[in-house]
């Protein structure tokens, strides 16, 4: 009916997108298996690197609280967050810049659904979720080691099981905001190759405990990546709730900040996205 606004069911559309991607992935099954193996082998290599480091030390940063198994909890948290990002948003963000460059964004703009939603969720790369298996196993193993150790065993507070996934979602939201803002900026920049390198280098900082950034240069760096581009809290906050003893005074303030940063990042990325759409001029004719 003319004039009547359309209210698509976002959940149903999302599920359809995910199902379509799964169908698509499953029609090239051996390719899917190879991709899953490839993405997990990268993770295993990383694990090997840290196993190597812990042959020489018991802790990353003296008194930082990141011993071997605490750090492995941290590492599995990184795996969870990265695999969600790689599965849900990475293929879409890449495609988004391409849509802008080629002018095919027109078709997305015409559809009766929020453009940011459509652009962000269209494709899902299921093979990246294979890392959940690795991350999950590593998490369970490390937690068993931590809770069963003779000296000062870790007691997991029931609330940790709520806070951990919650802050993982926050972390994903922060990284998503950063990614979508970066790819939206290709409206102004035209090319985006350097942007992807930029993404890689920025998120590189999030992969380590924030305690390692100390000293004359580290402290300002830590401040920038906590308060300006909040990538440091992405993994650190959820990992702390799981790996460290439950301590509201120690992890609380940063967690509160993480919630605020998540909301701010989402709002900022929405703003950038809308601004980008305003500046978008279709390519060619």
């Amino acid at each position: 009916m003319p004039g009547e606004s359309v209210h698509p069911s976002y959940i149903r559309v999302l599920l359809t997108f995910m199902r379509n991607s799964l169908v698509r992935d499953m029609s090239f099954r051996s390719n899917f298996v190879i991709e899953s193996v490839a993405s997990t082998s990268w993770v295993f290599m990383n694990l090997g690197f840290y196993l190597l480091i812990f042959r020489y030390t018991n802790e990353i940063g003296a008194g930082s609280g990141w011993g071997k198994y605490e750090f492995f909890v941290f590492l599995s948290t990184t795996m969870f967050i990265n695999s969600i990002i790689e599965a849900l948003f990475m293929p879409n963000a890449q495609e988004f810049s391409e849509l802008i460059r080629t002018g095919n964004l027109d078709f997305a703009l015409l559809k009766p659904i929020d453009t940011q939603f459509l652009v962000s969720c269209r494709r899902c790369d299921w093979s990246s979720l294979a890392n959940w298996l690795v991350g999950g196993s590593l998490l369970v193993y490390s937690l068993r080691q931590l809770t069963a150790r003779a000296e000062n065993p870790l007691q997991i507070h029931p609330l940790a099981f709520v806070l951990y996934p919650f802050f993982i979602v926050c972390g994903v939201a922060i990284l998503y905001s950063l990614m979508i803002s970066l790819s939206a900026s290709s409206v102004w920049l035209g090319r985006n190759q350097t942007l992807y390198n930029f993404w890689f280098y920025i998120t590189n900082f999030s992969r380590y405990p924030m305690e390692i950034y100390g000293g004359t240069y580290g402290t300002p760096l830590r401040a920038v990546f906590t308060f300006v581009i909040p990538v440091l809290i992405v993994v650190n906050v959820p990992a702390r709730w799981m790996a460290w003893p439950f301590d509201v005074a120690r992890s609380g303030p940063l967690s509160l900040f993480a919630v605020a940063a998540t909301l701010a990042s989402l709002m900022f990325s929405r703003w950038v996205f809308l601004r980008a759409l305003e500046s978008y001029r279709s390519a060619s004719s």
Partner: peptide, 18 residues
Amino acid sequence: IVTQIFLWWAVFDAMRHE
């Protein structure tokens, strides 16, 4: 490399304390 510098600093720092 910037992150590597900090990572290895933390590792050596812990080794010195141990």
